[in-house]
Amino acid sequence: MISDQVFISSVFKTLIYMAGSVGGEVVLGMTLALLVSQGLKVSGPLRAVLLLPMMISPVAVGLIWRLLYNPEFGLINTTLKAIGLPAVGWLSDANAAMAAIILSDIWQWTAYVYLILLAGLESLPREPFESAEVDGATAWQQFWYVTLPMLKPTLFVAVLFRALDALKAFDKVVILTQGGPGDATELASLFAYKITFRYWELGYGSLIAGVLIMIGALLSWSLNKLIRSGDSNDK
């Protein structure tokens, strides 16, 4: 395992996928939650549209995005061509494929992060914001020095849930790229599946699965520690 470059590369790709998808979801989810908490009215149908992707099975999400990414008649390339830009081989280009699977995950799970962060924002006390306003803090300063530190535990919980899910991403990737082109999107979970059920190396496959569990446990432990350190700083 230690000398297996394919495995090490798959772990590295999983980390890129995790950072890209969780980062995107947190930025977009936070933006949406802040806009809504500042009084932006999200009507019933729009709220339903926002939450809809979360309710769809990952396999169906993979199929939807495969159609969208289709190089000939997919909506994305058709739009690119219409505005005079060259078509992109979203799932056939080694560089674009990783971005493509990250984008589909962001589309599906941003609403989840938004919901968690909105609940956190709604529960924050008003007094620190009033004090900051009296002191003449700008909107950005209020966000950076008041909202973000108080929202840290909630933010870490959202990051933890999404990061653990990204670590075991499998179904969407299988439908979209099957780990390709080449092994550009072969995440560790997909590699473990191939080793176990395609090459029937059950011992080695178990080891990869075990290592993934250990990475997940380490991630949970470190984020949990960060959440608790945030709590103890507040006291």
């Binding site: 395992m1 230690i2 190396e201 059950l202 011992g203 080695y204 178990s206 569990i213």
Partner: peptide
Amino acid sequence: NLIGLMFSQVELTEIGFLIQFTGLENWK
């Protein structure tokens, strides 16, 4: 069971799984 398999060579035979302890062989 997973921890046990991490240190084993597992083969699928006609009569079932043949599990053989190999120590750190998988880890190399």
